[in-house]
């Protein structure tokens, strides 16, 4: 043990107190409440029961939607992001690379609310559908469908997928690719046997980040799904702000966090098996 002087403690105290009051305490409260009962006028009554967890099936539709659309959205993000990350890491000059990379990351840090609003605009009746109609391609309904939610998801989370893959590809030892081609491998084979395996840690990190954030998504389904495509996040808003069933809502939140923990555990398990699986992802 190392001697810690007073100054260190004083410097850590405000941050520590903030973490305790605004993070640890609230999470403990949610956990405790998930075993409680609903009060007559909403809210919470202390109890110890597993009824809330046994009752999770009542919100099965929300879990089902989330567990279908979140992995699907993650997969589409991956398929679109990988070629872009590849292009940025291996096919651009260093001078352009920084600018292009910043252009990918910047949207992620701007308001997801406004960016989803843009798609209400584009997918709504006067946007793309009226354009298609003018071209004589029918007048499909796009807004308030699972498709609209997927578009919003990909639009919102694509930058988060590009970045870790880019980092993995950029670190890749280019001499390995030269060696591979010198030894007579066609480019597609070098890609499959060298580039792709070495970029897997980045792919795993990107998928985990996007999937975890999607599990807790509320805004995109609320705005582009029009109440028809319901995520766990939407169920949580309903349970806490409308029906005020805190005990059951807490159980849903605990279940959500559990699914996410399983995801992270799986991620750690897989990345540890890949050699050199260190990936300090930073988004700036």
């Amino acid at each position: 043990m190392q001697r810690r002087d007073l100054k260190t403690w004083l410097f850590l105290a405000p941050a520590g107190a903030w973490f305790l009051c605004m993070l640890v305490l609230p999470l403990i409260v949610v956990f405790v409440f998930s075993f409680g009962e609903r009060g007559a006028a909403g809210g919470y009554v202390p109890a110890f029961t597993f009824d809330n967890f046994l009752n999770l099936g009542a919100r099965w539709a929300a879990f089902k939607n989330t567990l279908i659309l979140a992995p699907l959205g993650t997969l589409i993000c991956l398929l679109i992001a990988y070629p872009l990350a590849y292009f940025l890491a291996l096919r651009t000059s260093p001078r352009w690379r920084t600018v292009l990379l910043i252009l990918v990351i910047v949207p992620f840090w701007t308001s997801i609310l406004i960016r989803s609003y843009a798609w209400i605009y584009l997918l709504g009746g006067q946007g793309i559908p009226s354009l298609l109609n003018a071209l004589g391609l029918g007048n499909p309904r796009l807004i308030n469908t699972p498709f609209a939610v997927l578009v919003g998801i990909v639009y919102g989370y694509l930058p988060l997928m590009v970045f870790p893959i880019y980092v993995a590809l950029e670190r890749l030892d280019k001499r390995l690719l030269e060696a591979s081609s010198d030894l007579g491998s066609p480019p597609w084979r070098s890609f499959l046997q060298v580039t792709l395996p070495l970029s897997m840690p980045g792919v795993a990190t990107g998928c985990m980040l996007v999937f975890i954030l999607l599990m807790g998504e509320f805004l995109i389904p609320a705005m582009l799904g029009g109440g028809k495509v319901f995520f766990i996040g939407n169920a949580l808003v309903d349970l806490f702000l409308q029906s005020r069933n805190w005990a059951f809502g807490s159980a849903v939140a605990v279940a959500l966090v559990l699914v996410m923990l399983v995801t992270v555990a799986a991620y750690l398990h897989f990345t540890r098996r890949w050699a050199g699986g260190r990936d300090d992802v930073s988004l700036m």
Binding site: M22, L23, L25, P26, L27, V29, V30, F33, Y44, I212, L213, M215, G216, E217, F218, G233, L236, V237, F240, W246, G249, S250, A253, L256, V257, M260, V264
Partner: peptide
């Protein structure tokens, strides 16, 4: 890592 929505509800009911 904990999603904003969980932080939001946890803070709400705790406070």
């Amino acid at each position: 890592m904990v999603p904003g929505i969980v932080i939001g509800i946890a803070t709400l009911i705790a406070l």
